[in-house]
Design a protein around this nucleic acid. Structure first.
Lengths: 319, 319
DNA sequence: GTGAAAGCGCTAACAG
DNA sequence: CTGTTAGCGCTTTCAC
């Protein structure tokens, strides 16, 4: 039962004052190099690490940030989270992962909790219906992912660009009657923006739009595919707003024996494995995660102003 | 810019000493009900919450536990984690989720970090090759998931039982030549135990074992299915050691047009959606998570001794 | 350059 | 039952 070392133990061992040790710990330049060296030596030998709580208490900075994802097991969010962890932990922050389950109340709850906990900042994966009303005090220490939110920093994917990219790709491949499997419009990005991109394309190419909007589940994708192909049998491609929907649509194509080029968005691993022919768009999740984490750090550490970031996307296809 | 309230602010507002407020905060019974009531009133009105750092510093209890998963986006681990979060957060603990990526070094790193951070405990999802050597000080505050580890508490799934259950089910359905898609033996649970259960069954029914061991990926499942069916075309069932493998095997069956009853383990949602005919075994992930969290809390809060827990499993089938 | 000393907000003796 | 007091381990004036 060895007692934990304190700063004064180190001070005594090094024959200096606690102040000096503290200065070494905090990279304060006002320490003679040789003194610094000796102290560092002792610290390393003793395996000493300063108490985060004591430090936090003194400085009022917890070195803690919360990351609120919608689902912990979402493959796309996970990619972004992994990148965030890298940046934030590197910077000495503790990361508290929490799950919203697409509930605005749950977000408020988590945010309140983080406030009580005096967290230094947070990153929040947005979803349709997200409300950040009584959260004005988070304005300069919160980054919203996946959609813009007035008054807060945000990092967005290129929703319109992704669909546009895909449609142009298909057009080059000879597709002329692409139908669209989308998401309800109350979802502003995956829903509205992606549909809009589809409609824009139809207008530009002068073709009649043909689409279905629904939920985000596999089942929704299957159902939409079924209806679209039933309504217009000459549809030559199903452009899905997400890889999850594409997985559902793929199942329908398979079980019905019908044929159509199928595409998704999200660069999902399982989709690529099961249905390699399905093209997808990589939205740049890791890059988004890195960008969000950096933006947050710059805001809370250097007072950088709020910013709305946008990321480029990239086509993923086997042909 | 309102300053954060402290315990003495509350004490002053309530016209009592800080000790009394502290007692109210800590549910100490030695407070006159009416005093308590008044203090609680003030606390609520002022929206006061005690500083966790100050508290931690004083009590030497951080109210923090780490949870080290192998992959944050693993569906099965996620189910267990969700249940853990529920229990631990309920008990007032902060949960730090970390990822090992199946690396023993990474585990050591995280554990060291948690030690420095003075975390009160940890839950670790085991994997093959896990080594907990220099971690003796974690013995009474660590719970290992998914396999036993001498000297530590653990919560295990019923690996042998799951395969046994499945084989008996198939036998009743008339299956007589079940082949087994397994995992390398250096994985003691998913690998060894499940294979053993298969071999036991073969011995009991006096049939010739026919199996392949490989990795845990979809691709491995596909490959194993291909080889097994090539080697023995009269195989009437492919019993897979996991739903991931089953997904790979399902793809093979589909693309090759061959037929065989297929089963997995893990009750994976996507597998159920894409291939509803595939029976699976529910290993009880949420229950395992709850059990692990409770065990950990009991150990660190009440000194309950180390224990090796085992969970029952349950067949999931559409027929 | 360096150290002594004063707290940060809280809890745990110890008195009343 | 309640208040006074002494720190927990650290950073930060303010002297030297």
């Amino acid at each position: 039962m060895k007692k934990r070392l304190t700063i004064s133990d180190i001070a005594r061992l090094a024959g200096v004052g606690t102040t000096t040790v503290s200065r070494v710990l905090n990279q304060d330049p006002k320490v003679k190099p040789e003194t610094r060296h000796r102290v560092e030596q002792i610290i390393a030998e003793a395996g000493y690490a300063p108490s985060p709580s004591a430090r936090a208490m003194r400085t009022q900075r917890q070195q803690v940030v919360g990351v609120i994802v919608s689902r912990l097991d979402s493959a796309s969010e996970h990619q972004a989270v992994r990148a965030m962890l890298q940046v934030l932990e590197q910077a000495g922050y503790e990361v508290l992962l929490m799950e919203s389950g697409f509930s605005s109340d749950k977000v408020a709850e988590h945010l309140n909790w983080l406030r009580l906990r005096q967290a230094d900042g947070a990153i929040l994966f947005a979803f349709s219906g997200l409300a950040l009303d009584g959260q004005a005090d988070w304005q300069d220490k919160l980054v919203v992912m996946a959609r813009r939110y007035p008054g807060f920093s945000s990092v967005c994917y290129d929703d319109k660009g992704a669909i546009g990219l895909m449609l142009e790709h298909l057009w080059r491949q000879g597709v002329r009657r692409p139908a669209y499997v989308g998401v309800e419009l109350r979802d502003s990005t995956t829903g509205q923006q992606r549909l809009e991109a589809y409609l824009d394309f139809c207008r530009a190419q002068d073709i009649a739009p043909h689409y279905r909007l629904g939920g985000l589940s596999h089942q929704a994708g299957l159902e939409a595919a079924r209806l679209l192909l039933k309504e217009q049998a000459d549809t030559d491609a199903l452009v899905c707003a997400s890889d999850t929907l594409a997985l559902g649509a793929a199942k329908y194509l398979q079980q019905s024996g019908k044929a159509a080029t199928l595409t998704g968005i999200g660069n999902n691993e399982l989709l690529r494995f099961l249905f390699p022919a399905v093209a997808s768009v990589d939205l740049g999740y890791p890059q988004a995660g890195t960008a969000a984490a950096r933006q947050l750090l710059a805001q809370i550490e250097q007072g950088r102003p709020i910013a709305e970031l946008a990321l480029p996307c990239r086509l993923v296809s086997t042909d």
